[in-house]
């Protein structure tokens, strides 16, 4: 074998070994750092209906994100994602006006999640909600 192709071959072997070693370091490292998922992705959340009286809002965690349930003065129950569609702050419920205000850049949403004003580009995501036997079930 001529010395040059031998040198190239050895270089390739070394490169391969180094790449393998790099992978063996990177893979565990990425797995170690990757966010952990708790298996039950699609869960429902329940709580007593008494926790959401007329005109009130209740914030809770749903699927890893912040959500809100409100009971309007007319008795209607609405569940929404509370994450503002602009830059991700959590919207606040304004009881008297019956609308949501995002304190970050003054985005406004109706009780149904529709954009009323400000920078948010999209309505708040709605989440299915039911009430039966004094229990509210979200999801």
């Amino acid at each position: 074998m001529d010395a040059r192709s031998r040198r190239k071959f050895l270089g390739l072997c070394l490169g391969g070994l180094l790449a393998g070693a790099g992978g063996a370091v990177l893979y565990p490292l990425i797995r170690y750092l990757a966010p952990r998922r708790d298996g039950s992705a699609r869960r429902t959340v329940t709580f007593p209906a008494a926790e959401v009286p007329e005109g009130a809002a209740k914030f809770f965690e749903y699927n890893g994100k912040t959500a809100v349930v409100i009971r309007q003065k007319n008795g209607a129950l609405v569940a929404l994602s509370a994450v503002c569609t602009h830059l991700g702050c959590v919207v606040q419920w304004q009881k008297e006006k019956e609308e949501f205000l995002c304190p970050c850049h003054a985005g406004r949403f109706s009780a149904a999640g529709q954009v009323l004003g400000g920078p948010p580009p999209k309505p708040l995501e709605t989440i299915p909600v039911t009430a039966a036997n004094g229990t509210i079930t979200v999801g």
């Binding site: 565990p28 490292l29 797995r31 170690y32 990757a34 952990r36």
Partner: peptide, 9 residues
Amino acid sequence: NEVPFGWLI
């Protein structure tokens, strides 16, 4: 026991 490859680190 829980973190992937935590034992290794």
